[in-house]
């Protein structure tokens, strides 16, 4: 229903000339970069980065030379107090409680510690294991800086549903996922949003039609809409009709996919299209302006590259 209303609204839009479209993209890029900068500087995110980077941190997801494997993290075996010892570059451990407390030092917070009150996960057809229960907090003394609540469920060897909320001081992140199955077909409904105070910074929804196979499932059709600050990226991808082995795959993709960027006042900025670069079989996403001129998407939205390549 929401998609139908959006389609109706955006179908009445006008389109920016190239110059205005470029200005609009630069604003979007700047908004994303600012969000990344502000987010990475938050003390609680600094705290998570510290924990993630220590090989012996008692947390399920941490930096690894190999692919993340959380299957070895068993809450029952790890309960106790962990105190970071910078001289040993490791934690001192006391088995003294029924949950996990991790104490460490950060320049921006003196009395910081991370608390895991509950963590459960379940194996499914992929890796890492799917978390089915998380209750965790970052505290500065008695003050809660970040509270993580997550529930999930695995069915038929695949994630069936999840609800996650991450609440910080002035913001919260909410994410959800629901998969259905009826005979050999089904749907996936996903959403996530970031709110700061009364403002919604990001609000993304994906609705997919899928079919099941012995290997899991594959997409037949995807409709998505993502509000990012003052812009909306929306589209449909008719996967079922895209020919992955076509000699002109880009044309097949574009014929079956519509991806558009709008500024919030319903002014269209451009279309995102797939283009063969003609070099080393590379294909790249470009933005097509009102005058049909195409420019590499990452040229005006380098923040997307930064987002994809976040490293700690």
């Amino acid at each position: 229903m929401a998609f139908a209303i959006s389609l109706l609204l955006f179908s009445c839009s006008s389109t920016y000339k190239k110059e205005d479209a470029i200005r609009s993209l630069k604003v979007l890029n700047s908004d994303i970069l600012n969000l990344l900068t502000v987010t990475t500087e938050l003390p609680e995110i600094q705290a998570l980065k510290f924990l993630y980077n220590q090989a012996n941190s008692p947390i399920p997801f941490k930096k690894s030379e190999f692919k993340v494997d959380n299957s070895t993290f068993k809450m029952e075996n790890m309960k106790g107090t962990y105190i970071w010892n910078p001289e040993l570059n490791d934690y001192d451990f006391k088995k003294d409680k029924g949950f996990i407390d991790v104490y460490f030092q950060l320049a921006c917070m003196e009395n910081i510690y991370f608390q895991i009150l509950n963590y459960e996960s379940e194996a499914y057809s992929s890796k890492p294991d799917f978390p089915t229960k998380i209750i965790a907090k970052i505290l500065d003394g008695t003050k809660e800086k970040l509270v993580i609540n997550h529930v999930g469920k695995v069915k038929d060897n695949l994630p069936e549903f999840m609800e996650t909320t991450i609440k910080g001081g002035e913001y919260d992140l909410i994410a959800g996922f629901k998969r259905t199955k009826e005979s050999g077909d089904g749907t996936i409904d996903m959403y996530w949003c970031i709110n700061k105070g009364l403002f919604t910074i990001i609000d993304a929804k994906i609705l997919a039609e899928i079919s099941y196979s012995q290997q899991g499932f594959y997409y037949n059709h995807i409709a998505f809409e993502s509000k990012v600050f003052n812009h909306t990226i929306m589209g449909t991808i008719d996967y079922k009709n895209i020919e992955p082995t076509s000699t002109n795959y880009a044309e097949s993709f574009n014929r079956n996919a519509t991806i558009e960027i709008f500024e919030s006042s319903n002014i269209k900025v451009g279309d995102i299209v797939l283009v063969s670069s003609g070099v080393d079989d590379l294909q790249e996403f470009k933005i097509q302006f009102e005058n049909n001129e195409q420019v590499l998407l990452k040229e005006y939205l380098p923040a997307l590259d930064k987002l994809y390549n976040l490293k700690y």
Partner: peptide, 9 residues
């Protein structure tokens, strides 16, 4: 493998 089990591909 790459079609995730879609027999049409």
């Amino acid at each position: 493998v790459y079609s995730n089990g879609d027999r049409s591909k």
